[in-house]
Design a protein around this nucleic acid. Sequence first.
DNA 1: TATGAATGAGGGTTCATTCAT
DNA 2: AATGAATGAACCCTCATTCAT
Lengths: 209, 209, 209, 209
Amino acid sequence: MKKDWEELKKEKQQIIFDSALKILKEKGFHRARIADIAQEAGISYGLVYHYFKNKEDLLNEILDQWWAKLYQLLEEIKKSEKNLNGRLKGLILYFLDTYQRKPDLIHIFITQISRSTTILTETRLDNFRKFFNLVEDILVQGQKSKKLRQDVDSRYLVYIFLGGLETFLSIMVLGNESLTSDRQKEKIADSLLEVFLNGAGAGKSARRT
Amino acid sequence: MKKDWEELKKEKQQIIFDSALKILKEKGFHRARIADIAQEAGISYGLVYHYFKNKEDLLNEILDQWWAKLYQLLEEIKKSEKNLNGRLKGLILYFLDTYQRKPDLIHIFITQISRSTTILTETRLDNFRKFFNLVEDILVQGQKSKKLRQDVDSRYLVYIFLGGLETFLSIMVLGNESLTSDRQKEKIADSLLEVFLNGAGAGKSARRT
Amino acid sequence: MKKDWEELKKEKQQIIFDSALKILKEKGFHRARIADIAQEAGISYGLVYHYFKNKEDLLNEILDQWWAKLYQLLEEIKKSEKNLNGRLKGLILYFLDTYQRKPDLIHIFITQISRSTTILTETRLDNFRKFFNLVEDILVQGQKSKKLRQDVDSRYLVYIFLGGLETFLSIMVLGNESLTSDRQKEKIADSLLEVFLNGAGAGKSARRT
Amino acid sequence: MKKDWEELKKEKQQIIFDSALKILKEKGFHRARIADIAQEAGISYGLVYHYFKNKEDLLNEILDQWWAKLYQLLEEIKKSEKNLNGRLKGLILYFLDTYQRKPDLIHIFITQISRSTTILTETRLDNFRKFFNLVEDILVQGQKSKKLRQDVDSRYLVYIFLGGLETFLSIMVLGNESLTSDRQKEKIADSLLEVFLNGAGAGKSARRT
DNA sequence: TATGAATGAGGGTTCATTCAT
DNA sequence: AATGAATGAACCCTCATTCAT
């Protein structure tokens, strides 16, 4: 019986979560009103405070959930047998899949979290650092296995890789583009990887002079 | 005489501008108070309304100024005799120079403008589209002159190029890093270009398989 | 069986009572939350409403209990064979004993009840009037038996006597002082009585000129 | 001109002060709403925040003003040539005068400040201690000049003296009694002093056995 | 041009109370 | 008897904006 309660509580939390996601996407953190979120969730606004300490806390829980999943994925990637190409593609597809399933979440990540220093407390910045470090680990392994050039600081490679990915997502997010077929995701992932690995330059002459 | 007045007005506006820049950087658009900006500028908050219609208008003017300068640069680049490499490097250095001279401006561009949909009205999104289009023009020219590969959508190339640049700037901005020497800027620009053009992959085998 | 139920109910009520006492002392009536009291009592806050109609009612019950005991004591004193001195000392010691056993109760009496007009409804004021009247009865008897001077309004004597007592208690309450030995209580009671009866003046000359 | 501004500001503050006084008296700190105070003052509630940081601050300013005046009086009394009797009478009359002119202030002192530990921060308790110490100074001088008995702790004398005074004030405050004639004030002061100095006991036998 | 007093919409948060389980 | 989810009135405080001076 107790379990049912727990589950019900979790479910309700999730409803509030999803409502918050939608409202945050539409209005941004500062303009999102608790009343909006509650209305979206079909509950009274007082109840939001039953499940979350306050607005700040609600955002934090969303972020924590986001980061937890992302870290989990990266750890899995690191443990996997995939080669560099497969690993990076896995990461890209994770973002694209998430965008497909929960576009609001990616929207918020792109527009609110990944940049806004207003919201960025030191704790939250730490999450970013950890994320960048995990990606760097993967790229350093790539350098060691001679899959990636070693004459460029691994940190720079991280910036360029994630930068390209983020801009892709940004464009989709800001343009409200939909992502329907798996084929489309594959194509995007491959293009990104292709240019990241082989460069935008045309042919040998452009690439190595 | 009239000119003096005009000039004085411009000067005062600029003072408010710079103050706004600083406060916006520190607090973000929603938490930045007119009173803060006025205090920073050393004037009464009522006076701000003599020079700007309202808070929204103040932000718009800042953005307009930013975009105007950026468009101007891009037009100059397009008209210049430089080759693709020089053009892209010029663009990168423009951002780095601006970061050096007015870090607040880049900070706001990165954290507030480039992503926030809260602030992004349709009009403002147009500025982005125009910016991306101008950069795309340059890259398409590169493709036509066989400097850039033609098997990738020029749009994708824009995303990857600007994405890498933006992430570099983001890192500096979020980390409050300083940029002192010209040499440092050169190195960053070259690294970015090198990877963008030739890819992160190591040697032929990695790049073309 | 019914008795057991009644008793259990009384017991539970008493637990809530004591918890309320503690919380009221710590936070005062307005800041004391039902949830605090329930937590202190180790029960859910909903249950409080099974035993008390509402917050107001809970406070009323506490007050009623307090006044009932005090009235009972005063009636006993009036019926007793003690002389004036013994009667007044009995009253003082009652307060000191109560402070020793239930400091929270005296704390609340001093800080919340005896003065606060916020809480003082007309009904509650009546309790005060009754208390003052009962003490006045004792002092009037003292005047009749020539133990107390008759040239001062008996009402004034009440104010001075209770005022001194209350300030003593206030000091202990506000200073969180502890009262351990019976000797200490005796000393306080004697000092109070001594000054009340014989004045603070030094010798005849000061007292009767 | 500037002076006029300053004065106007002070005046407005005073209006808010007085309104606050009235509302605080009627409702007590926790139930007093800023909106009430503003309405009483005939201004919008937002303006209250122009003059005072918040509700807490408003209360603090009232308290500070109260204590400042009281301390000033006590210092004057200490410096004066009056004898003990005159000094104590001066103190009593100050309270009675204030009650006559600003009954709300005395009301708040009695019901909110002098007891409520809810409102009593450590800083505010310090004011009490200072007040008690200043009165003790006067009484110790009385002991030294043989006007007061030395066989009772001077601290106790303070409690008894101020206790009587406070209870008098309390009765007036809680009963909403008016104090019109100077004669009435004189009579009260004399009675208080008479009993404080010579005791409530009747004749020698009662007083010295 | 310049000031800052004045306004009030807006939104976060608390918490007593009810009620289904 | 017992729980705690659910509700919403109440109230504090912020701050953009206006306007008299």
